[in-house]
Amino acid sequence: SRHTFEINGERWTVEGVSEELKEILRAAERASNDEAERLLRLALKLI
């Protein structure tokens, strides 16, 4: 499935992501810059 999210003013669209990964991306959208970066690094390990 496709998911579009915005982090630090940048929009991203990813396809074929699991519900778990979507949850991480949604958390990154709400997080501070440092926390968002940490969550994105974690998410990339899952891809």
Rank of each mutant, 00 (worst) to 15 (best):
K22G: 09
R30H: 10
R2M: 11
R26I: 10
V17G: 10
R30K: 13
E29C: 04
L39D: 00
R11N: 10
R26Q: 11
E29R: 04
A43F: 15
L42Y: 09
V14N: 01
T13Q: 07
I24D: 00
R30T: 11
E20T: 09
R41W: 08
V14W: 05
A28I: 06
R26E: 11
L25H: 00
F5L: 06
S1K: 11
L44H: 06
N8W: 05
R2I: 13
L40F: 06
V14G: 01
G16Q: 07
R2F: 12
W12N: 00
K22R: 13
L40I: 07
H3T: 09
L42A: 05
T13W: 13
I47M: 13
L40R: 03
R11V: 15
L39K: 01
L39M: 04
R11A: 10
E29I: 05
R2G: 10
L25T: 00
E10R: 08
L21D: 00
G16K: 05
S18N: 10
A27K: 12
L40P: 00
D34H: 11
L39H: 01
E19A: 08
E20C: 11
V17F: 07
E35R: 04
R2D: 12
S32V: 09
E29Y: 03
E23A: 13
E6R: 02
E37N: 10
A43Q: 00
I47D: 02
S18H: 05
G16W: 12
K22V: 15
S32L: 08
E15C: 15
S32M: 08
L21K: 00
A43M: 05
R41Q: 13
E20A: 11
L21F: 06
L39V: 02
E37W: 09
L40T: 02
D34S: 11
D34E: 14
V17C: 15
E10W: 06
V14Q: 01
A36Y: 05
D34R: 09
H3V: 12
L39P: 00
L44A: 05
I47W: 05
L44Q: 07
E15D: 10
I24Q: 01
E10A: 07
H3A: 09
E35K: 04
L42R: 04
A27S: 09
E37A: 10
I24L: 13
R11M: 15
V14L: 09
E20P: 06
S32E: 13
L25F: 14
L44M: 09
R11H: 13
R2W: 11
L42N: 04
E23Y: 07
S1F: 08
W12G: 00
L21P: 01
S18L: 04
A28S: 03
T4P: 03
A28E: 00
E35A: 06
D34W: 09
A36R: 12
L42S: 04
R30P: 02
W12P: 00
A28Y: 07
A28C: 03
N33A: 15
V14Y: 06
R41C: 14
W12Q: 01
L39Y: 04
E6I: 15
E37Q: 10
L44W: 05
E19F: 06
A31Y: 03
T13G: 02
A43S: 01
L42Q: 07
E29W: 02
R26G: 07
A43D: 00
R41H: 14
V17M: 08
L25V: 02
L39C: 03
R11W: 14
L44G: 04
A36H: 03
G16V: 14
K45Q: 14
L40A: 02
I7S: 01
R11S: 14
A31T: 05
W12A: 00
L40V: 06
N33F: 15
K22Y: 15
L42K: 07
N33T: 14
R38V: 11
R2P: 09
R41Y: 08
R41V: 09
A36L: 10
I7W: 03
K22Q: 12
A31K: 03
I47K: 02
E29T: 08
S32A: 09
R11K: 15
A27I: 07
A28W: 08
D34P: 12
